[in-house]
Computed example of a mutant assay.
Amino acid sequence: MKPVSPLFEQIDKSINKKMNLFQSSFMRYAFRAMLACMFLTLGTAVAFAIAMKGEDIAHGLGKMLYAFMFSWSLVMILYMNAELGTSNMLYMTVGVYRKKINLSFAAKILVACIFFNLVGGVLFGYLISLTVPYQDLASDSFFFTSIAGKLNKTTTQILVEAIFANIVVNTAVLVSMRMKDDAGKVAAIIFIIFIFAFLGYEHVIANFPAFSLAYFASHGTMAAMTVGSVAHNLFFALIGNFIGGGLVMGLGYAWLNNADTNYLD
């Protein structure tokens, strides 16, 4: 019998928890998925609000402040046990590979998670757009120009950036699972997520609240924001995120740990 690494014992337990909740109380699962985007919306909102203040102080400061503050989103998601589609890309792929869940059930969980992430992103993006920091923003603000930049990327840029974005996100998830000290865990998550946030990589779930907030805060006046540009970004970000999180990190590490060796994670 092949040895099982402590890390994959934790992953197996997480997969079982997700399966049990999905089967026993679908609405509770859906609510946890919506909560993930509530935390992402809050993280996105405070990150951009502080970034806009930072840009008033010095050009370039805003981007650094944005990346640091956005990183707290994943801390909230992990500690509050919310269901995030991009981390579930790893869990479900690992589960299928390790025969802990069949392909159709894994697909149901992942699709439901992403759908309710979207519902949460639109809902909480709208609600945050009603708050004071997002009233009467200038069309050339750091927030709007950042979102326009995302919507103007080429297919190749979105795809490659999305791959690396979810490699980073799932690295943070796996690293946090291996750490016992909460302070170290939080610090690790923040500085790892900082990588993709600062580099501006594409994360399909994070874009749900970001695009929604931009749409409602601009009252639909952003020239770069069309149905086509949003669909283009989200579609290829979704594919890239699955490649990075599901195939590279999920399948890759599941394969690495499916060996009769002591070199396990």
Rank of each mutant, 00 (worst) to 15 (best):
M1Y: 13
F8S: 02
E9Y: 11
Q10M: 11
N16C: 10
Q23N: 14
R28F: 13
Y29M: 06
F31Y: 13
A36G: 02
V46I: 13
I50V: 14
A51W: 00
G54I: 00
A58T: 12
G62P: 03
L65K: 02
Y66F: 13
Y66S: 07
T86G: 03
N88Q: 14
M92N: 00
M92I: 05
V94D: 01
V94I: 14
G95T: 00
Y97T: 11
Y97R: 11
R98L: 11
R98A: 12
I101K: 04
N102A: 07
S104K: 10
A106V: 03
V111R: 07
A112I: 10
C113Y: 04
I114P: 00
N117F: 12
L118T: 06
G120H: 01
G121A: 03
V122Y: 09
I128G: 05
I128F: 15
I128M: 14
L130T: 15
S139Y: 13
G149T: 09
T155I: 13
A165Q: 00
N166L: 04
T171L: 15
K180H: 10
D181A: 11
A183W: 07
A183H: 07
I190C: 04
I192M: 08
I193M: 14
F194Q: 02
F196Q: 01
G200H: 13
Y201V: 02
A206R: 09
N207P: 07
P209H: 07
P209Y: 04
S212E: 01
G228P: 06
V230W: 11
F235Q: 06
F236L: 15
I239N: 04
G240L: 06
F242I: 05
G244K: 01
Y253H: 11
A254M: 06
N257Y: 07
T261H: 14
N262V: 09
